[in-house]
């Protein structure tokens, strides 16, 4: 399973995805069994037990770990696909302003919710989706000249969009009353704490649906790494692939931000690590990134809720603290080879 394999075979695909799936299950079990309160897994699943351990496990830990897996997988897939589309390993939902757009959309609905008859838990996902899509559309328009995507302009447009939505969020926050401000900050900081299996299920539905749609573009994404012209000359309908990938990945980012706020670095680092381990073929990279992203975020969130005994650290802090140095290490190690 070294980085260099001459090409992707069905056998290699099954081996890698199978091993990662097993690892993910192990990670879920381990993460669910760790926490500030010690629980006994066997006690928890014993129907004759007192039910305290079972309640902690099934009401708090399992849904939270599963949500982390779904969010991590979604962000990682979006990152892998955006990197391929822009032919740039620096592309990522946060850098491209998609997460910022989603956050602004969500904040706007939190602010407006008090003036509307609808509850915010229904409105916030809609706002996040709309924000993610709108941000992606704006960046896309700015980053394409005469129908051709200009990767560097695109990245810079994303950076600008991110700064702009950041300012807008602060502006909304300044207009909001103290109660709302608290709600907005709490939401923005992000947390994967949930006891709702409905939320977990709908998150998985988004990730699986989006993952399948994007996975089906895998061969086209491979061809697109040669550039748009060469991809078209290899028979790829570039405009349609580009549209599908941008829309679906923005929606996946919107879903992730809606349930968990801003969690950075997952979409940047996970596809990188996965590519280094298993090669750049998107047929393997997209599903493998999903599994690695799930493992990574579940682990990071477990650290976030156990690292300090008095209070929880936001999971985004953990991903950034682990991710930043690791990214720098990869950059240094790979030198000019992959980051020209």
């Amino acid at each position: 399973m070294g980085a260099v394999q001459s090409h992707l075979t069905r056998r290699r695909f099954v081996t890698v995805i199978g091993s990662l799936a097993v690892l993910l299950v192990v990670a879920i079990v381990v993460c669910a069994s760790i926490g500030p309160v010690r629980i006994d897994l066997f006690e928890a699943i014993d129907p004759r037990g007192d039910g305290v351990d079972a309640t902690i496990l099934l009401r708090a830990r399992v849904p939270r770990v599963l949500l982390a897996v779904a969010v991590g997988a979604g962000l990682a897939i979006a990152g892998a696909v955006l990197q391929a589309l822009l032919r740039n390993p620096l592309a990522e939902p946060h850098i491209l302003g998609v997460s910022g757009g989603a956050a602004f959309g969500g904040v706007l609905t939190l602010f407006a919710a008090s003036r509307l008859p609808l509850p915010s838990y229904l409105l916030t996902p809609v706002g996040a989706f709309a924000g993610a899509l709108a941000a992606m559309l704006i960046v896309y328009r700015l980053g394409t000249v005469h129908g051709r995507l200009q990767p560097y302009t695109f990245l810079l447009a994303g950076v600008v969009c991110n700064a702009f939505t950041g300012a807008l969020i602060m502006a909304v926050n300044a207009m909001a009353d103290l109660f709302q401000t608290h709600g907005i900050l709490f939401w923005l900081m992000g947390s994967l704490a949930t006891s709702s299996y409905r939320l977990v299920l709908s998150s998985f539905a988004y990730v699986i649906l989006g993952g399948v749609l994007l996975g089906m573009q895998a061969r086209a994404l491979n061809a697109l790494s040669l550039g748009e012209e060469s991809a078209a000359q290899l028979g790829v309908d570039v405009a349609s692939v580009r549209r599908t990938c941008f829309v679906v990945s923005s929606l996946m980012v919107g879903a992730a931000v809606a349930v968990s706020g801003m969690i950075g670095f997952v979409g940047l680092i996970v596809p990188h690590v996965t590519r280094l381990m298993f090669g750049p073929d998107h047929r393997l990279l997209v599903p493998a990134s999903a599994l690695v992203g799930g493992i990574f975020l579940a682990t990071a969130d477990t650290m976030a809720r156990t690292i300090s005994s008095s209070s929880e650290v936001p999971v985004g802090v953990i991903t950034a603290l682990c991710g930043g140095p690791f990214f720098v290490y990869l950059l240094r190690r790979q030198g000019e080879r992959h980051f020209r």
Partner: peptide, 9 residues
């Protein structure tokens, strides 16, 4: 080519 595909790939 920005990604390290092999020649065969």
């Amino acid at each position: 080519m920005p990604f390290p595909f092999t020649v065969l790939e």
